Computed example of a mutant assay.
Amino acid sequence: MAHSQYSNPSYVQSLALIFSIFSLMNFISHATDPPLTLDYYSSSCPTALEVIRKEMECAVLSEPRMAASLLRLHFHDCFVQGCDGSILLDDTITLQGEKKASTNFHSLRGYRVIDRIKNKLESDCPGIVSCADLLTVAARDAVILVGGPYWDVPLGRKDSTTASSTLASENLPTANQGLLSLISSFVYQGLTVTDMVALSGAHTIGMARCANFRARIYGDYEQTSDKNPISETQLNNLKSICPATGGGDNNITALDYVTPNLFDNSFYHMLLRGEGVLNSDQELYSSLLGIETKKLVQKYAEDSIAFFQQFSDSMVKMGNITNSDSFVTGEVRKNCRFVNT
């Protein structure tokens, strides 16, 4: 699965240097950001966390898939301008949002759930709780509601008044990325290889579009899988959902066919069997360059507690990627879809 250039020692050394520079840039840019705190709304909006939790309970109970949708929304927000709610902005005459970027279009959902929660918060505490904080807490609650771990969410983010369709297309990982490119995407955000493998475990819930796994199932899926009857049946199922030609781009399948609505470590067992639906997921285990990532996949497959702990830590770390500009020029939006007028 590796490209020949990746086997060149000087190429790998150059990438290592680039990763180090990215990490230093990220540290410098975030070192002076105002700190986020756990008790940010304790006085100004003491009901905030309860409101978000209750609305998320209703949303996930009525549609379990919504848990993955809110988690993905948060991820796609944080990788563009930091966790600033920019992903929630609709296009206007003066602003081109991120929703229609190639990496987001047909991929993201759950906006109406955010709207409902925001309306409740505005009723209780007008102009207090930012959409960026709302989305971060909602993602945490989504994970809990389908069996995943709890973690404390630092709060105090401001909502950006800008968005970047360009950065959404450039910064977000894609389904067919190779391992080193994938690592680069995460390191650029100040996240480690360990963070990357743990956060990829979010694919234990959620769905994938045919357009994003067609190359995988008609490519090297048979080479990585165990070629046992179960793997062959799963591949045939995927091919029936996603034809090689003739459309079907928006047909979907579960990323984890074993326990699709349960947050567990089943995803990593799939990678061990070579059954990852997305190329970018299977690369974590099957890439010739994935010495460190392979060990982590094995670790999380063997120890769900270790996975839960690292996922929690990595989610806090990702949630702390801030938009420095939003602390200066940001606001608390009254409507998450539009900047305040």
Rank of each mutant, 00 (worst) to 15 (best):
A2T: 13
H3M: 12
Y11C: 09
I18R: 15
L36A: 12
Y40A: 11
S43E: 10
P46S: 11
E55R: 14
C58H: 07
S62F: 00
P64V: 02
A67N: 04
A68Q: 08
L71R: 14
L73Q: 07
L73H: 06
G85S: 08
K100I: 01
S102E: 08
T103I: 09
K118L: 10
S123K: 12
S123N: 08
P126S: 12
S130H: 08
V137Y: 08
V137G: 07
A139E: 01
Y150M: 13
W151H: 15
S160R: 14
Q177K: 04
L179V: 11
S181F: 07
V187S: 10
D195E: 06
V197I: 12
M207A: 03
Y218M: 09
D220P: 10
Q223F: 11
S225I: 04
I241C: 02
T245P: 01
G246E: 03
N250R: 13
V258A: 05
P260M: 07
P260F: 02
G274C: 13
G274F: 09
L278W: 03
L284F: 03
L284G: 01
L284C: 03
I291P: 00
E292L: 06
V297C: 13
A301F: 07
D303P: 07
S314P: 05
G319E: 01
F327G: 07
V332P: 06
K334R: 15
N340I: 12
